[in-house]
Structures are given as C-alpha cells and as structure tokens.
Write a protein that binds this DNA or RNA. Sequence first.
DNA 1: TTGAAAGCGTTACCAA
DNA 2: TTGGTAACGCTTTCAA
Lengths: 328, 328
Amino acid sequence: MSQPATVADVAAVAGVSRQTVSNALNRPEVVRPDTLDRVRSAIETLGYRPHASARRLRTRQSSTLGVRLEPVHGISGAVLDRFLHALVEHADARGMRILLFTARDVDDELTHIERLVEGSDVDGFVLTSTFHGDPRPGWLADRDVPFVLFGRPWGQSAERAEVLPWVDVDGRAGLRAATAHLLEAGYRRIGFLGWPSPSGQGDERRHGWQDALAAAGLPDQVQLVCEDDVSAATEVVTRAVADGAAVDAVVCASDTLALGARFALGPDVPVVGYDDTPVAEALGISSVEQPLGDAAAAALDLLMGTGRSVLPAPTGHRLLEPTVVWRP
Amino acid sequence: MSQPATVADVAAVAGVSRQTVSNALNRPEVVRPDTLDRVRSAIETLGYRPHASARRLRTRQSSTLGVRLEPVHGISGAVLDRFLHALVEHADARGMRILLFTARDVDDELTHIERLVEGSDVDGFVLTSTFHGDPRPGWLADRDVPFVLFGRPWGQSAERAEVLPWVDVDGRAGLRAATAHLLEAGYRRIGFLGWPSPSGQGDERRHGWQDALAAAGLPDQVQLVCEDDVSAATEVVTRAVADGAAVDAVVCASDTLALGARFALGPDVPVVGYDDTPVAEALGISSVEQPLGDAAAAALDLLMGTGRSVLPAPTGHRLLEPTVVWRP
DNA sequence: TTGAAAGCGTTACCAA
DNA sequence: TTGGTAACGCTTTCAA
C-alpha cells in the first residue's frame, strides 16, 4: 500500500462510478444491495479509507471539537482529565475528534479559539472551568460559533443564561446528600469548609450543606473559609478548633480542603471531600464523585442533538446528580 | 464575515493572482517587498486565514500528531497530563496540532492508529507508556509511520532499539541522586521500595539506588517489592519493619509507594517518591521530578528535526536528567 | 439507481 | 517575480 486508495480506485475495482462509491458510503439506503456489496468488498480488498481532509474541505465540516487543555491544578487536576477522557470516547463514537489547545489565560484562549474557527479547524468548542465574568460564552455566541459549557454560566444575565447550552454537576445536591447522610449517622455538629464567595461552585456546595442542616432543624453550624490549599486548610481548621469551634464532622468544597481538615482533625472525625480524587481514595477520605462520563455524553448531546454534526446554535442544559463515595 | 475569505478574495483586493498570495504566505522571500506589503494588508483587512483542510488536502500533510489519552492511573495520572500539556504547547509553536484518541488496550490502540493513518488524519504519533513486549514500535516502523516514544523501547532487540526514536527521563540517575543525597545527610540504612521485575522504569530506578549504595560501600540494604498501591505498600513496609528490617530512610519507585511507606514509617523517616505528584507536594514528601517540558520538546525535535513537518523516519534518542525536590 | 460534471480552497508546476 | 493551469480526494447537484 504505497499510495492510499481513493474513491476512484474503489470505483474501478467495483466497476461503478465514483459517486456510487460515495453514496454507498454516506447514503447506503439509496444504493442497490448487490451494488453495495460489490463496493463494500472493493473497499475491503483495497483497504480504502476516506481522506479526512478532502471530505472536510468538501463538506465544510471539520468533525472536530476544540478543547483547552488546562494547566494541572493540584490535586483536582484529574477531574478535567477524566472528563476529557470520557469526552474523547463519546466523541469518537459520534464520529467527532478532539483537538487540543493550551492558553495562558482567557484572552489568550480567545485568540486561540479565533484562530481555530477562522482556519475551519473545528466545528465547535467544549468550554470547561466556567467562572464569574467569563467572557467566552458571549464572545462565541456573538460570532455564532457553536459551543457547550461544562459548568454553569455563572453570573450571566438570566435571559442569556437561559439560552446558553451548559452541562453541570449539582454540587448542592451532592453536599446536601453528604450532610444528610452524616445526620442520619447521628452526627449533629457538622461544619463546612469552603472557598471565599463569590464562587459559583463553592457557593452551591455551601448551600447544599445549609439545605440539609435547615431540613434537620440544625442551622448555625461552624462555617470556615480558605483558599484551595492543603496547609492553609489545615491551619484554618486547627485554629478554629483551638478557638472553641465545635464540630464532630466536616464537609468540604474540595478534596484539597478535606485533606487539610483530615490533618487538623485526625482520622476519627469524618470528613467529606469533593471530586473523589486519587488522593481521597488513597487516604480513605469520603468524597462526592462527579458523573464525568455522563457529563461528557450530555455535553455532546447538547452540542450535536441526535445527529452526527454540530448544531448551528446549541441550547438547553443538563444538571447531573453526583454520588457520595463513603469510606470507613 | 458571513463567508470566510479565500486566497481568491485576497488576490482580488491586492490586485495579484492567487498564486502570489500563496507565495506571500509560504515563501515570502520569493515575493517582491511591495507586493508582499499589498498582499499582507489585504489579508489584514479581509481577516483571511488559510483553510486548514484545503491546505492539508493539497500538501498531503495533516500537521497533526496523534496521542493516546490514557485512562487516569491513580496518583501519577498527572504526569502524562503534564507531558501532554507541554506537548500541545510546543507543538503549537511548531505549527502542529495534537489529536487525541483513547483505546481500551494496545490492540485497540493499534486499530485506532491504523484508522488515523489511513484517513490521513495524522502525520505521526507520540507514544507514551512503553513497556516490555510493546508491539507498537514494530507495527509503526513496518508501515513507515513516523513516531517517537516517550519511554525507552524496553525489551526490543539491541539493533532495533538503536534506531528507534525515543525520549526518556533517567530514573536511574534520579534515584542515584536521591540516595546519594540521603547518604550525605548521614543516613546509612536506606531501603528501596519498588515494583516487581521485569519493569523497565522500575528496574532502572532500583539500579540507581544500588549505584549510590555501592559507591558508598554500603550494599545489601533492605529491598521491598509490591504493586503500585498505597495500602499494599503500607502493608509491605509495616510487615518488613515488624520482621526486623532496619531502615532509617526509604527511596521508592513512585509517589504511590512513597505514600504507603510514609504511612508505615511516620513522618520522622525520610521517604523519597517519584514523579513529584500533587499528593507528594500536599503531604510534604520529597520526590524525583521529571522534566516533562523538556521531554516534550525533545520528542518534537526527534520527530521533526528543525523543520515544521514530521521527518519520514525519525531516529535517535534523548535521555533527560530528573531533579529531586526535597521537602522538610 | 447510476453516472457525468462541477467545485470546495489550497499549492505545485511551468511558462511568461 | 508573477500568473495560468492543474491537481489533491471528496461530495453534491443534476441528467440519464
């Protein structure tokens, strides 16, 4: 196989014209069965594969989705990694490919996005790590570039947020479930360790904790705040306990914080983290696990509907339920 | 910008022919300066970008490299992630893109690779996680598909290994340095916790430990073996100590093992891991850090030489020195 | 149901 | 140095 076979080669072997080969490939129902068979066996013997670039040039579709590969962020880096993995798999099943790019910051990301769009390199984007004041959704929507967010459009106006396509995991429900479970197990003084406000995900998770406490008639529990850093978390919790804070269990906004809390409180005080990272698993810390495979599938559903190409203007959203992984 | 501009549009605006625009883009030195200026300003005003697929169809180069995104493997998952990140950045700087694919196992990986090659989707591959009996290098070499290994061609015949292109980090040097440093600090009974043989990287790392001990005239130290799992490691070390093994420091083949050793020995016995994962950082465990950015750059150097396209048959190799990150 | 012809946007070749 | 012409491999009209 010095030179890859083309439609013309297949057509010659099958004794039909090029277009018939193309039809056999793309609209098999329109070709007579025995012709179809001849074409298919010709494809088989020649080891023919359509030339991706040629097809893309003709169809004006790249069948490719752009995804920014973000810098690894500490312990939770594996989360986006797992999402990406699931995304690649589901995309493959739908005939789509994932093209990576990196960027220093959001402005740089928009520059890259612009280049990819203008070079017709991608049909759309999956945007991760949404945040308050995120300029990307607006930028893309203004230019009619299809996209879907993994993460809610925090801080967007209500009308805009309503039509923006996004997939997210319901952190509030996750922490609500974790807290409720601890309450059932008899714990009464359940503290929360989270990030400073405003933080989309962080505030959601705090609300989940509050929901469960309110439902149990136990408001006003200990609430601590610090940056997402193990030593900082250890220090905050240690100081709070020294100052007389009463907790017999702690739910946290992340595994990083949970790890700090565990160091401060020892193994006898139940701690629940978020993201179910390998660290939580290794240290036997309970954690809220995001259904990342489902999230990836949902993102593609929103972006592509039931078809095999990206919708011109995706819309709608999906909020997925996480599950709590309990460890001794 | 309803319809993206093409070379023809640029040519019309600049008052030249299509070909001159193409030349201005790809071989500017062959175009007269003032013509070049006219073309460039036309490109500017039109916001023209070459259509990637059209160019690829014509040049028969995809300017794309295929990389398998592997399942996240516990604590060390971040390593390939960081390598991938660096690879995307360096590739971008060289006008190359990274296309991801996933696979269940090596056979499935070869199937994917075949598909990508036959569809002219990629110009070559960067293969990670090489292992004894790896069929991929042979498969690709047999078909003249360019590739480079991140990891040595373990277990390949000497002649074949000699011409195979690979980049790797010298784990042996890393553990030698770590062990030597501990020896200088006065530790004399330095144990090693590693993986079962044969393991390319694992055996290398063990040799590094042995090198340093032999140089210091202190052979026959405690050597332990277990699978790459935290609890297994904890158990193995705990049992060894209970059985009378004498160690006042331990170097390990991975951060996972180091974590287990830390649990078994407590914070007063120095433990050195490998890969400098976020976990090691969070727990204050010293670790050998791989220069992943350099590895990615070296991989592309091997694959592309100094040019902007993949070499037909890359060859040569590069062994990089890791550094030890010491923590209190 | 099948075939002929056109064209997607680009670059390579050759002549001017 | 510049421009005309011809592909690259594919799909999409439109006729037969």
